[in-house]
Nucleic acid binder design. Structure first.
Length: 486
RNA sequence: GGUCCCAUCGUCUAGCGGUUAGGACACCGGCCUCUCACGUCGGUAACGCGGGUUCAAUUCCCGCUGGGAUCGCCA
């Protein structure tokens, strides 16, 4: 096989958002490049001018960077094999097409799309099950070339077969008699997928093509093209497909499928990647991997061949594992990622170290950075946002004496540590012959506005004395107002 | 229909001839407990079917069934 370091690529079409299935393909390629010291190339396949947009390309680049899947060659970073957008490579395809024609491996076809469509429909009308194949009208045309637009077709062999050894699927044999003279270049001179991909992979020195199994059907015709061009055939690795829970193609109607949606929900990039890498790949019983471990452990041999179904709950659980662990997600990273979500809630200008101090309390409760911001919310307001139901249930008249007693107790305490607060609180309960159950919830609602928070004393200690007292006062006034009104 | 591919709990998977078929998520119970979580203990749950090969098949081979991909001047 090819000498030197592997060169792999991710070649998305900028025809929409970045799909998580595409991310998995990018990830596997990226991991292989990192593991082997190879090169990860990003190529934009924008030959579908109807649907490709610069905006979509920008989104793809931005999301890949957010994921941490940086590329060694490609748009914005350059490289020796550019340009990296197919529409900027038209002269290169032209050159290769001329080679093919000169070698008799391709020919000009003057049949129009309309003619072919009509033939296709006529056949379908006669026999709905029949498959239409290009009849070869222009294959051996002689005489002067008509003055009409033409496409370039591949002269596909009708005998023999193509065999390749897939790194995931093993040996795959496909007879050539099922191939047809596929169009290589449109009438407008823009190449189609198979030609563009092959020429680019040749000229960019790609040694291993790893892509989704939906492309497996393209591999034999592509190999035929490599052979016709006299170019070395790269290795191939096809990845099983990630389907929707209902077994259909994973699309928008099944929920979130674009990376952006996960980013906006506060799913950590490493969590998403960890979920995706475990989809179709395994390393014994291990489930949670730091990225640096993945780079080391990844291999094609441990890829599975069976398609799978996407499971949002599993993704959430794996992301949560990363958020819970300060080894996996250090405080600083956690903070950097949570701050935007706090700002989205209208919170800003707070002390980063103050947020850091609360982190241990919320890590085990927040499945996403958005959850974290929610759990952090009442720590950084003068008064919490009071949940209506919680107020109605716990800030009621018969709890007022308890709250007042707690307020007076707290006012007298100087050591506002969680430990001391708990001890003194216990004394108060004993004195009043109360159960903590009777008092904890009203106090919790008074200081946080909600019924579910981390341990009461930890929360109190972090909110600090003046604000705790202010909130208890506010809660008492709410009770007074409601009982007065009622 | 042609071609290609696949097949272990509901889901992601371990297994690479001999295992009480393991783990994780989800689900159901118990414990912990000031709420919510975390944690922890336990439970339900799988080798699609039929033939071979073998002393022995989840594992190897064939067929069937089922599922998926693709059959475009989309990628």
């Amino acid at each position: 096989m090819a000498q030197g370091k592997p060169r792999v690529r991710f070649a998305p079409s900028p025809t929409g958002y970045l799909h998580i299935g595409g991310v998995r393909t990018a990830l596997f390629n990226w991991l292989w490049a990192r593991k082997t010291g190879g090169t990860f190339v990003l190529r934009i396949e924008d030959t579908d001018q109807e649907r490709s947009t610069p905006e979509n390309e920008a989104i793809i680049l931005r999301e890949l960077r957010w994921l941490g899947l940086g590329w060694d060659e490609g748009p914005e970073v350059g490289g020796e094999h550019g340009p990296y957008r197919q529409m900027e490579r038209l002269p290169i395809y032209q050159e290769f097409v001329e080679k093919l024609i000169a070698a008799g491996a391709a020919y000009r076809c003057y049949c129009t799309k309309e003619e072919l469509d009509a033939q296709r429909e006529a056949l379908k009308a006669r026999d709905p099950k029949a498959q239409f194949r290009y009849p070869g009208t222009c294959r051996d045309r002689t005489g002067p070339a008509p003055d009409r637009p033409f496409v370039i077709r591949f002269r596909a062999p009708s005998s023999g077969s193509v065999t390749y050894r897939d790194l995931v699927f093993g040996e795959v044999v496909t007879p050539n008699n099922t191939q047809q003279d596929a169009v290589l270049v449109r009438a407008d001179g823009v190449p189609l997928y198979n030609l563009g991909a092959v020429v680019d992979d040749i000229t960019m020195g790609i040694t291993l093509v790893a892509r989704g199994r939906d492309h497996m059907i393209n591999t034999p015709p592509q190999i035929l093209l490599y052979q016709a061009l006299g170019a070395p055939v790269p290795q191939f690795a096809h990845l099983p497909m990630m389907l929707a829970p209902d077994g259909q193609k994973l699309s928008k109607r099944h929920g979130a499928v674009s990376v952006g949606e996960y980013r906006e929900r506060g799913i950590p990039a490493v969590g998403l990647l960890n979920y995706l890498v475990r989809f179709g790949w395994s390393f014994g019983d291990e489930e949670i991997f730091p990225m640096q471990d993945l780079v080391q452990k990844f291999s094609w041999e441990n890829c599975s061949k069976a398609d799978g179904k996407f499971d949002a709950k599993k993704l959430a659980a794996i992301a949560f594992e990363h958020l819970k662990s300060s080894a996996l997600t250090p405080d600083d990273a956690y903070l950097d990622n949570t701050l935007p979500f706090l700002e989205k809630r209208g919170l800003s200008g707070f002390d980063r170290e103050a947020v850091r101090a609360v982190l241990p309390l919320i890590r085990e409760r927040a499945q996403t950075y958005a959850d974290a911001a929610d759990a952090l919310d009442y720590f950084f307001r003068d008064l919490p946002v009071y949940d209506e139901k919680a107020v109605k249930k716990f800030l009621v008249a018969d709890k007022a004496p308890h709250l007042r007693a707690v307020r007076d107790l707290f006012a007298s305490i100087d050591d506002f540590s969680a430990k001391n607060l708990e001890a003194r609180f216990g004394e108060l309960l004993a004195e009043k012959k109360l159960e903590i159950k009777d008092v904890a919830q009203p106090v919790r609602v008074a200081i946080s506005g909600r019924t579910a928070t981390p341990g009461l004393f930890d929360v109190l200690a972090l909110i600090d004395k003046p604000r705790v007292l202010a909130r208890l006062d506010h809660a008492l006034s709410l009770i007074a107002a409601s009982s007065g009104a009622g």
